[in-house]
Amino acid sequence: MSAEQPDAAPAVVVDDVTRVFSKRGRRTVAVDGVSFIMRAGRDLGIVGESGSGKSTLARIIMGLDQPTSGRVLVHGEDLTSKSRSRAERLRRAKLVQMVYQDPYGSLDPRQTVRSCLVEVLRLHPPRGGNVAARASELGDLVGLTPAQLDRSPVGLSGGQRQRVAIARALAVEPRLIILDEAVAALDISIQAQILNLLAELRDELGTAYLLISHDLAVVRQLTDDVVVLHHGRLVEQGETGAVLDDPAEDYTRRLRDSIPSRHWREPGMLEELTRVG
């Protein structure tokens, strides 16, 4: 897709990151020495099943969690040090924002969509300083009508709420948006609309996406490169198309072949597939 830019500084550098959780004397290694680079101008998918460490890694890149060892650079800034000052936190917010799977849980039901956007814009004033105008503009950008902006998120459908979550992330004008299973809970027809919207916004605004997903078809549709995690370790990385068409690692192949397909109808195929591991 986009041309390689070897001289451009990488958007994200994950350098030998390990995260160990200790609970009642039991150590769990959630992320185990993971290193990769997200190149500037290319969207990256992080793929894995439950327990792969993908969500822990997302939280670390977002600066919500600290690695036990290793470091993360987002556009050259080390986010793995604790941020103390308010100014520092606001500046970091401009680097990376996150959109979660559940649009129901991540929006305050007591305020309208517009006031939710205005709140973010007060913290991160837009160029020109017109907060109200920018709120309307953001609504327009993600395909929400003025009437929908004046409703509580409770009165909106799942797809509309996810548009609100995207608008709120965009309000900060971040360089990177982490999409954590952001289209996983949506109906097929709504999912298609949101995937198209994300692609349009990328082309229009130049925002880069780091997509955390278990859904390989969604990863193929939205990303240029992919990293595959399994039990906290990186098992494979490369261009999304190349990795999915011809996985180098058994685990990636198994992940791909577990996706329902007509092969399941061949005698013994499903049984063969599920006997592994």
Partner: peptide, 11 residues
């Protein structure tokens, strides 16, 4: 409307 694992669609 469902994305495909086999190809990336422009839209």
């Amino acid at each position: 409307s469902r994305p495909s694992i086999e190809e990336r669609m422009p839209r």
